[in-house]
Simulated scan of single mutants.
Amino acid sequence: MKSSLGKLKRFAFQKHDGKERKEFQPPPKIDHLALASQEMQDMRNCYDSLLSAAAATANSAYGMVVA
């Protein structure tokens, strides 16, 4: 029992080198307005692409019916 406690104490009180310890760094601050603006632009581009594809499909279908 004493042997187990001794090992536990040595383990708990081990000294660590500064090299081994990683310093805590706070996450970088995010500009939420810029992030929201970029997301809106991405959604607008996606929506425009979908409309363009739908128009091309409709024009293709109309061209097949008329021809």
Score class of each variant (00 low, 15 high):
Gly6Glu: 06
Met40Tyr: 11
Ile30Lys: 13
Lys22Val: 03
Lys2Gly: 03
Met64Asp: 13
Lys29Tyr: 06
Ser37Leu: 12
Ser52Pro: 00
Ala12Ile: 04
Gln14Leu: 06
Lys22Ile: 03
Gly18Gln: 07
Gln38Arg: 10
Leu35Glu: 15
Cys46Ser: 14
Asn59Lys: 09
Glu20Leu: 12
Ser3Trp: 01
Arg21Glu: 06
Gln41Val: 14
Gly6Arg: 07
Leu51Phe: 03
Arg10Phe: 01
Thr57His: 07
Lys29Val: 04
Asp17Phe: 10
Asp42Cys: 04
His16Ala: 05
Ser4Asn: 10
Ala56Trp: 08
Cys46Leu: 11
Arg44Asp: 09
Pro28Phe: 07
Met1Phe: 04
Met64Arg: 10
Phe24Gly: 01
Ala67Ser: 14
Leu50Thr: 08
Gly18Tyr: 12
Arg21Ala: 09
Asp31Pro: 02
Leu35Gly: 02
Ser3Asn: 09
Leu5Ser: 03
Met43Phe: 01
Asn45Asp: 09
Lys19Asp: 15
Ala54Phe: 00
Leu35Phe: 12
Ala36Phe: 11
Glu39Phe: 12
Asp31Ala: 04
Leu8Trp: 05
Lys7Tyr: 02
Ala54Val: 07
Leu33Gln: 09
Leu51Cys: 13
Asp17Arg: 10
Gln41Lys: 13
Phe11Glu: 05
Leu35Asn: 06
Cys46Glu: 15
His32Cys: 06
Arg44Leu: 13
Arg44Ser: 10
Lys9Gln: 02
Glu39Lys: 15
Lys19Val: 03
Leu35Thr: 10
Asn45Arg: 14
Ala54Asn: 08
Pro28Met: 06
Leu33Thr: 12
Ala34Asn: 03
Met43Asn: 12
His32Tyr: 13
Gln41Asn: 06
Asn45Val: 05
Ala67Val: 06
Ser49Leu: 11
Tyr47Arg: 15
Ser49Gln: 15
Lys19Trp: 08
Glu23Asn: 09
Met43Val: 13
Tyr62Gln: 05
Met40Asn: 09
Leu33Val: 14
Pro26Gln: 10
Met43Gln: 14
Gln38Asn: 08
Leu50Phe: 12
Met43Ile: 13
Asn59Met: 09
Asp31Phe: 04
Gln41Pro: 04
Gly63Pro: 00
Ser3Met: 00
His16Asn: 01
Phe11Trp: 08
Tyr62Ala: 13
Ala36His: 06
Phe24Lys: 10
Met1Ala: 05
Cys46Phe: 08
Pro28Val: 07
Glu23Val: 09
Ser49Glu: 12
Met40Gly: 03
His16Leu: 13
Gln38Pro: 01
Ala53Leu: 07
Phe24Asn: 06
Arg44Met: 13
Ala36Leu: 14
Lys19Cys: 01
Leu8Arg: 00
Lys2Val: 00
Asp31Trp: 02
Ser49Pro: 01
His16Phe: 15
Ser60Thr: 08
Ala67Ile: 05
Phe13Gly: 00
Asn45Gly: 11
Cys46Asp: 14
Gln25Met: 03
Met40Leu: 14
Leu5Gly: 04
Tyr47Asp: 12
Lys19Pro: 00
Asn59Ile: 06
Arg10Asp: 01
Val65Arg: 14
Ala67Asn: 15
Met1Glu: 04
Gly63Ile: 02
His16Cys: 05
Ile30Met: 09
Tyr47Ile: 09
Asp42Tyr: 09
Arg10Ala: 04
Gly63Cys: 04
Leu35Arg: 12
Ser60Met: 04
Lys9Val: 00
Val66Lys: 15
Gln38Val: 08
Arg21Tyr: 02
Val66Gly: 03
Ser49Tyr: 00
